[in-house]
């Protein structure tokens, strides 16, 4: 549906170079990357507000690289929703319809229809200043969807809201996408958005798309350690050698339930690593003597960095355990984790 061919853009400190991307009709595509990686610049180029230095943008086979934004038929939804403060909700939603010459009567019908579906019909005569975050998002989506654009471009639409609301809005977004069947291109820095919303995810690091995959696939098999780390995976280690059920990393033999010859990395969730003063018998296949290198607060838990030979791991423990074990720099402990806690890619 949308094709980006060898897009290049140099802007200040960062560059997008030779970026290729192909979006399917009707899919929810999430472009995931840390802030400052050029995601917004990409959206600006696709929307037509910025020209690429090189490369082409095609939509349904047509070259639209130099088309003005109003001719592209892509509606942008911004992080702060960019509602028009001098217009009512109804006029906001009708804006795109009126701009395309739809008669005011038909526009009003479409507005009523759409706002009823989005549960904002009661807000039509209000000004946008007094809307809650959730209402604002729905108005912004209604406004973007009203003229039936070929594609929706969502620039971090969930970044400005608090955690509880974010989950609700995510749910809403998915429902709306399923309902409309419009192609969504959503850029975000939050892996949870990708996991929950995307049919396919592109991970953008350092001006390149490193990996494109379905979210399950992405989290199961990140293409490299940078991608894995960005996705929130911790204790990532390069595997020296591996065979069925076991591998060597950092000079230590580690049991990994899913290991085979093809794997190159393993990672272990910090909360799945147990720390103890004494070795103990259990079904867990991995147990090492280790030493505490350092520790720091990590929200409601403490992150304890331990080393065992060349192996370096981070474990998360509660304050209670931390005190009970008397952890300090240099404390000698045992770390234990199950072979099923070792993830491979």
């Amino acid at each position: 549906m949308l094709e980006l061919e060898s897009l290049c853009k140099r802007l200040g400190l960062f560059t997008i170079s030779d970026l290729n991307l192909r979006l399917n009709q009707g899919e929810y595509f999430v472009l995931l990357g840390p802030s400052g990686v050029g995601k917004t610049v990409l959206i600006e180029m696709v929307a037509g507000f910025m020209a690429p230095d090189a490369g082409r943008i095609l939509c349904e086979g047509q070259d639209i690289t130099t088309s003005p934004p109003e001719a592209r038929d892509f509606a942008v939804v911004y992080q702060d929703y960019a509602l028009f403060p001098h217009l009512t909700v109804a006029a906001n939603v009708a804006y795109g319809l009126r701009a395309r010459g739809v008669k005011s009567k038909q526009a009003a019908e479409r507005v009523r229809d759409l706002t009823e579906k989005l549960n904002i019909a009661a807000l039509l005569n209000r000004h946008t200043g007094a809307l809650s975050g959730g209402e604002q998002q729905r108005v912004a989506l209604a406004r973007a969807l009203a003229p039936r654009p070929r594609m929706l471009l969502l620039d971090e639409p969930l970044a400005a809201v608090d955690v509880g609301l974010r989950a609700r809005l995510r749910h809403e977004l998915r429902r709306i996408h399923q309902h409309t069947g419009t192609t969504f291109l959503h850029v975000t820095h939050d892996p949870d958005d990708a996991l929950y919303l995307a049919e396919r995810v592109g991970v953008m690091l350092g001006g390149h798309i490193r990996q494109i995959a379905a979210p399950e696939e992405l989290f199961r098999a990140p293409s490299d350690a940078d991608v894995a780390e960005f996705l929130g995976m911790r204790n990532i280690m390069t595997v020296d050698s591996a065979s069925q059920g076991v591998c060597r990393a950092g000079g230590v033999e580690i049991h990994a339930a899913l290991a085979d010859e093809s794997i190159s990395h393993i990672w272990i969730k910090p909360e799945e690593i147990l720390l103890s003063r004494q070795p103990f018998d259990s079904s867990a296949r991995n147990q090492f003597r280790c030493m505490v290198e350092e520790w720091e607060n990590s929200g409601p838990l403490l992150a304890v960095r331990i080393s065992s030979g060349a192996l370096r791991l981070t474990a998360l423990v509660t304050y209670e355990s931390f005190n009970k074990l008397g952890i300090d720099v240099g404390t000698e402990l045992y770390c234990t984790f199950k072979s099923s806690a070792v993830h491979c890619f």
Partner: peptide, 18 residues
């Protein structure tokens, strides 16, 4: 006037004049 408002309007199909 935030420039994003103008961009949003352009993306909705409005000409620069509009």
């Amino acid at each position: 006037v935030p420039e994003r408002l103008e961009k949003a309007a352009r993306s909705l199909g409005a000409s620069p004049w509009r």
